[in-house]
Nucleic acid binder design. Structure first.
Lengths: 362, 362
DNA sequence: CTGAAAGCGCTTACAG
DNA sequence: CTGAAAGCGCTTACAG
């Protein structure tokens, strides 16, 4: 008799127990194992218990490939984000992840990063037959992108877009912007700039567009020449946009940033330039980023993680056929007033004394 | 003859083209289609072109379930992170995502969130037969977790852990900590506290442990009573830890934070308390978080996204059988000096000039 | 409540 | 260089 050879030292693909192993151990057919383990009706409690015991003894988990092929379901969901390292997107992903996990779905993450990644994604459509549903975050979808997604034949839900093609969750960006501008106007600011990554932005939010339009409309007097400076995105975008404003003829008394990370960039540049916030310039952001409190930043708060959660639930509804494709959930925003905004100094001479709040300068 | 019923109005699972459809259109066998599309050898250029044309005409993409079942490969990789919303983890994920996408792998994200999520994950092992390889980020793995992962029979790579069970990428946390402490000591600080989320932390980094130990060892004089205050994690952890220090008998002249987000919390609390940085307290963080520049924070920089990239490459090596399981890649750290640190004020009267203190360099 | 049979869409040896 | 056959591990009607 030949002796058993020693096992290879490290992990080679192990043989996992199959449904047949479980069936044999439990003394039933594979069909019954399948039914019992999926919690279907019409299995006697005794049988079910026996099957479960056998499955657990063998550490059996149904092969996703096997069941996927047979059933057409993957039990996973694709989540498409522009840039997962941006705070907003990570929050949305986390919110969705929680809900999906509870429902037993895996999360396939597609991080588009830039225009070329986006193109590749929609061309190759790696989602095809890989996912049961798709969550698309913050992308204003082009026509061919909409049809690519439609062709998936799977439920699609958007976050932060208002594309009528799919159900979605979002905030009212125009209203949020108005909340910010109203605050600045009430403080007496007459020279307000907006800094935005919009122009430069292949990955542009739908939100960015709405915020810009609302910004223009919300300023009381069109002659005040709202100033939109496009930069790169994120912190660096905010820095360079603010630098551009500093290099301009007349510094605005207040700046509205498309989102908090740009506001942070503006804060950074202002501090480096030795200017005080809000003494010299007031700043309002958008999002209520976790670190807005450190920057003492006045900002328009939106529920972020919740948008991911709600969207995931809509997706699950779609999967169970219980959804209304017309759904458009709009979550509320509110202004959080912190120390980065103060009444306007009126730069044209009339210095009405206004005690700016504490500006911590390094 | 019965008339065809009208199609349902919206997206029901579409029938995707199968390999047979492509084979018929191209006038070859399914076997040849399979070979041609996967770029295998032994297909004539003409045949390959014909197959590719047919596939593209039909928008054919091989069913992952079908090929997975037949080949045993999934072309996807699991990435396990404690909390994806933390800056560090999002960066690592993004780094890995880029490399994996280039190699044609999908990324399955597992966001553990808390101890219960972690437990569930290792119990259910949703990775089983779902992924070809696994990237585990920053978790110090318990024995049973190591064996769960081993049982997957798939390549495993870690980031930010130094578990000898698997190849991995990391930094030298002890050395990074020494860089920070040396800086403070050179500035004359004799009362340095460390704030850390360690004690509280079910999701604890391996890194946190190393940093704490190194902190204790790096301080030149043991009598100086290094003060470790455990708090919650993240910004709030830093806030409450700093608040605890403020409530203590003697405020340290410098604080070393386990990582930048905790440092940000400390900064926030100090500013609210009206204390100046670095005038009253110097602060050093760890990570060089994107927003450290806004906080003007001195910090130990580590390559974060790169760790994700390198780890993903190790994984791909493992998949192609080209890897050395002993691999332990250590990436360098360096101190970035900004405005949050300054020479110590000596609170106890005896103002010895800011001398270069003697550091006990290991 | 339970099971035998067919089939989901691929890939893998094996032939030629 | 190409193809016919078998089989990967499940689930789904269909019977009983």
């Amino acid at each position: 008799v030949q002796k058993t050879l020693p096992e290879p030292p490290v992990s080679e693909p192990r043989d996992h127990a199959s449904i047949i192993d479980v069936a044999n151990l439990a003394g039933v057919s594979p069909t019954t194992v399948s039914r019992a383990l999926r919690g279907l009706k019409h299995v006697s409690p005794l049988t079910r218990a026996r099957v479960e015991a056998a499955a657990s003894e063998l550490s059996y988990v149904a092969s996703p490939a096997g069941s996927g092929l047979a059933s057409g379901r993957t039990f996973s969901v694709g989540v498409v984000v522009p840039i997962v390292t941006r705070w907003f997107f990570a929050q949305v992903v986390a919110g969705a992840a929680t809900v999906l996990r509870e429902a037993g779905y895996d999360l396939l993450l597609y991080n588009l990063v830039d225009a070329s990644g986006r193109e590749q994604f929609f061309e190759r459509m790696p989602l095809r037959r890989r996912v049961d549903a798709v969550l698309v975050v913050s992308l204003p979808l082009a026509g061919h992108e909409v049809s690519s997604l439609r062709d998936l034949g799977a439920p699609i839900v958007t976050v932060g877009s208002r594309d009528p093609a799919f159900p979605g969750v979002r905030i009212d960006d125009a209203e949020g912007t108005r909340q910010a501008i109203r605050h600045l106007v009430n403080l007496g600011h007459e020279s307000v700039a907006m800094i935005s990554a919009l122009e430069d932005d292949d990955m542009g939010f739908a939100a960015a567009i709405d915020r810009r339009i609302a910004f223009r409309e919300a300023l009381p007097d069109a002659t005040q020449n709202p100033h939109i400076v496009a930069g790169m995105w994120g912190l660096q975008g905010g820095q360079s946009a603010m630098a551009a404003l500093l290099g301009g003829e007349k510094l605005p008394t207040a700046v509205f940033a498309e989102y908090d990370e740009m506001a942070f960039g503006a804060v950074t540049t202002l501090r480096k330039a030795g200017l005080r916030i809000p003494g010299d310039v007031s700043i309002v952001g958008f999002d209520n980023h976790e670190l807005a409190v450190m920057a003492d930043l006045t900002t328009v708060a939106q529920p972020v993680r919740e948008q991911g959660e709600v969207a995931a639930r809509l997706l699950l509804d779609g999967l169970s056929g219980a959804s209304d494709p017309e759904t458009d959930v709009v979550l509320p925003t509110h202004l959080v007033v912190r120390g980065s905004t103060a009444p306007a100094r009126h730069p044209h001479g009339l210095r009405r004394g206004v005690g700016p709040a504490v500006a911590s300068s390094p």
